[in-house]
């Protein structure tokens, strides 16, 4: 009896959890399926299981994507998003690691005050001062410049803190022996410490890339030319440009999600590490 009961429980729990998993997935399955069928069949299929399957004719699966690419300069938007995200990633690794190095291995006047200020700034919710940030961008004449998207995103107190923590754990004797060999402060940073910091670079880099890729409101504020828009803004524009075809909207939603699927697949472990640091530090 116990064995058959066990089997029964396993089957029952598998069914329940499978249903739960499908509940989580159904919006995304519907999104992808709808991007692979004609506009009329999306509406016709709504009530049944067919809503979650692509169209019957495989030759038509790419047609919404093709029409979308014909109507909008999608490649341009993808390129913009990739360039912004890569620039932010590279910038934030360099800027934050350099600052972390300064706080960890130098002893300069005002260090304590500056570091205190940095830690305090972590509680400032940056989103509440977006319009004042916009005002600064305006004063600097950076409106509609890609720099307005990239610049503000390359320094973050939390990222500096993560690099500082890592460099603190690197023994000073390593730094000293490099110095005895005649290495300059920059060489020590560039050739000795930065190559050691690969895990932190991966964490900060991945977080920066995702943050930049997903950013919506800030680029919307500072960019005015459509050909400079990143994908996230292009999506809302496409969704508001008549005539609106649902299968094309679902296609652009799918396109803009694919790169993140890849990022999460390959860099997930570093994201968890970053969160672990956030949990241990910063108290």
């Amino acid at each position: 009896m116990t064995k058959s009961r066990k089997t029964f429980i396993i089957i029952l729990s598998t069914i329940l959890i499978m249903l739960l998993a499908l509940l989580f997935l159904f919006p995304l399955i519907w999104m992808i399926a709808s991007s692979m069928k004609s506009e009329s069949s999306i509406y016709n299929d709504l009530g049944g299981i067919k809503a979650f399957l692509p169209g019957l004719n495989p030759a038509q699966w790419g047609s919404a994507y093709q029409k979308l690419l014909g109507r909008f300069n999608i490649l341009r938007f993808i390129l913009n998003s990739v360039l912004y995200a890569l620039a932010v990633t590279l910038g934030s690794v360099l800027v934050n690691s350099a600052a972390g190095y300064a706080f960890s291995k130098f002893d300069f006047r005002g260090k304590k005050i500056l570091f205190g200020l940095l830690i305090a700034s972590m509680v400032v919710p940056g989103d509440t001062i977006m319009i004042q940030k916009f005002q600064i961008v305006k004063i600097l004449h950076l409106i509609n410049s890609p720099w307005a998207v990239i610049f503000p995103a390359v320094a973050g107190a939390f990222n500096i803190y993560m690099f500082k923590n890592f460099f603190d754990q690197v023994s000073d004797s390593i730094v000293e022996s490099a110095e005895l060999d005649g290495a300059s402060a920059f060489t020590i940073y560039w050739r000795v410490l930065l190559p050691m910091a690969k895990p932190v670079i991966a964490t900060v880099g991945t977080l920066s890339f995702i943050g930049s890729w997903n950013d919506y409101i800030w680029p919307l504020m500072v960019l005015t030319d459509a050909d400079k828009f990143p994908l996230q803004i292009a999506i809302t524009n496409i969704n508001n440009t008549q005539p609106v075809y649902m299968n094309q909207v679902m296609a652009i939603l799918t396109i803009s999600t694919v790169p993140l699927v890849l990022i999460y697949m390959f860099f997930q472990k570093y994201l968890v590490q970053g969160l672990a640091v956030a949990g241990n530090g910063d108290k």
Partner: peptide
């Protein structure tokens, strides 16, 4: 403290972008 500590002014070079 590392010997780099003596060259404190160089720290500002590394801090400048973030600041």
């Amino acid at each position: 403290m590392s010997r780099l500590g003596k060259r404190q002014n160089q720290a500002w070079f590394f801090l400048a972008p973030a600041i």
